[in-house]
Write a protein that binds this DNA or RNA. Structure first.
Length: 420
RNA sequence: GUGGCUGUAGCUCAGUUGGUUAGAGCGCCUGGUUGUGGCCCAGGAGGCCGUGGGUUCAAAUCCCUCCAGCCACCCCA
């Protein structure tokens, strides 16, 4: 094979593409009910946008970005996630001037240079949404519930919703310090990775999968004991409101997200059916981010759904069976004169929004019929010299094998005939 | 980035202890009906056996490199 797609980057074809479209469609319709509008931003941004927002010491920034310099030496990067770009766009376009409150959603590819495995790709797609300008914890609950609705609507009803509060710049440092000290006092029993984490990002040790570390984490200080009154109140409201909305969830103080900008509410939607890549959606609040990136002091919250993972789940659970679209009418013409007329018949039907596919390649009637059958079409229009001379065409019902001769003049009535 | 498993036709897979023209099923094409589909029957096309190198008289088969997929770590969607 001459040229192959890059590692971890996939082509998406028929039948799966229909599932993609269905999912995207579902998202657009549902999000619109909550007041979200789509935004489209470039996939390429200044490298610095991601370094500053996601955090210099996160593994995304340290080793997973597709970054390079352009012809003039400017450092660029393909977006590894969507929030930073949307925040940048919100600031740059002065959206807060007229009204700081805004709800956006976006759908598109993201890029991370990781070792691919099932549910993890170098180019992957997210459906994400962001809300700016609302500090009220009820929006946190509403957003999480909307994501829940999103999955329910696709027949995915067994995801685990896990929530946590990461505290805020007022209370988190105290906890982080306490937690670091705990790690230090147990250095000897920590795994190699957690040693490293102790320096750079101690909280990550919370979701280490090494058994010794896991048992150690059970005894570790928990963030919930150190939340300041405001954070605690915020989190409580999120929980009770989410309960009122009818979403079932659990609180997990170990969920730590890999992006530095999160604070207070964070959440994940996980499945047990996709192996180790179990997060199908995740998100959280990022109140300081807009200001950090040079904008006004506007709070924010967002989430992202992993398309590939969601679609793998859908296919796995057979909630939606991907199928190729079948033409309602399949046109078979033999000879130039018949082809001329076939085009007219087809156009007439298409004007009535009927899906017509004409066979241009079949070498024999038999071959074309075989293809019509394979395409699972219910109706076939057949035309040859005989029919042309008689001013008719044959309409064949593939199910009953009945066929009728229809005068060319009655093309207008075809749509009704086909519907019954 | 680390460790493990894997790579033969479009798909799913056979392929003996290395042995000469690499197979099956499904799918595809053609014929059995100068113009009628599914089933059946017959025939056919399609493989640099992932890539490059090595061992050997001889490699799909043994060894190494690289590439890709999968699994775990890591990370997260």
């Amino acid at each position: 094979m001459a040229i192959k797609a890059l590692r971890g980057m996939n082509d998406i074809f028929s039948p799966e593409i229909h599932v993609w479209q269905l999912v995207e469609d579902h998202a657009r319709k549902l999000f619109a009910l909550y007041g979200y509008e789509e935004v489209r931003t470039p996939v390429l941004e200044e490298l610095n946008l991601f370094v500053r927002s996601i955090g210099e010491t996160t593994s995304i920034v340290e080793k997973e970005m597709y970054s390079f310099v352009d012809r003039k030496g400017k450092a660029l990067a393909l977006r590894p996630e969507g929030t930073a770009s949307i925040v940048r766009a919100y600031i740059q376009n002065e959206r807060a001037q007229s009204d700081p409150v805004a709800r956006y959603y976006n759908i598109g590819p993201m890029y991370r240079y990781e070792r691919p495995q099932q549910g993890r790709y170098r180019q992957f797609h997210q459906i994400g949404a962001e809300v700016f300008g609302i500090a009220n914890p009820r929006i946190d609950a509403e957003m999480i519930h909307m994501v829940d609705q999103f999955f329910q609507g696709l027949g995915i009803d067994d995801l685990e919703i896990e929530l946590n509060s990461l505290g805020c710049p007022i209370c988190r440092p105290g906890f982080t310090k306490k937690f670091s000290e705990y790690l230090d006092s147990h250095q000897s029993s920590l795994c190699e990775d957690c040693h490293r984490r102790t320096q750079k990002n101690p909280l990550r040790a919370l979701d280490c999968k090494q058994e010794t570390c896991m048992t150690l984490m059970k005894e570790a200080p928990s963030i919930q004991d150190d939340l300041c009154d405001e954070c605690e109140g915020h989190f409580d409201t999120v929980l009770t409101h989410l309960g009122h909305l009818g979403s079932s969830f659990s609180v997990n103080h170990k969920i730590v997200r890999g992006l530095d900008y999160y604070l207070r509410t964070t959440f994940e939607f996980t499945t047990s059916q996709l192996g180790t890549q179990n997060a199908v959606a995740g998100g959280g609040r990022y109140d300081g981010l807009v200001r950090l990136l040079g904008g006004p002091n506007v709070p924010g919250i967002g989430f992202a759904v992993g398309m590939e993972r969601l679609i793998e789940l859908i296919l796995l659970k057979q909630k939606i069976t991907p199928s190729v679209l079948a033409p309602t009418v399949y046109g078979i013409a033999m000879g130039d004169a018949a082809h001329e007329l076939m085009i007219q018949v087809a156009q007439s039907l298409r004007r009535s929004h009927i899906f017509v596919e004409i066979d241009y390649e079949g070498q024999s009637l038999k071959a074309m019929m075989r293809r019509a059958d394979r395409r699972q079409t219910p109706w076939v229009v057949i035309m040859g010299d005989e029919e042309v001379n008689k001013g008719i065409f044959i309409l064949r019902n593939m199910g009953t094998k009945e066929q009728k001769e229809i005068p060319m003049g009655e093309v207008q009535q075809l749509p009704q005939r086909i519907k019954t």
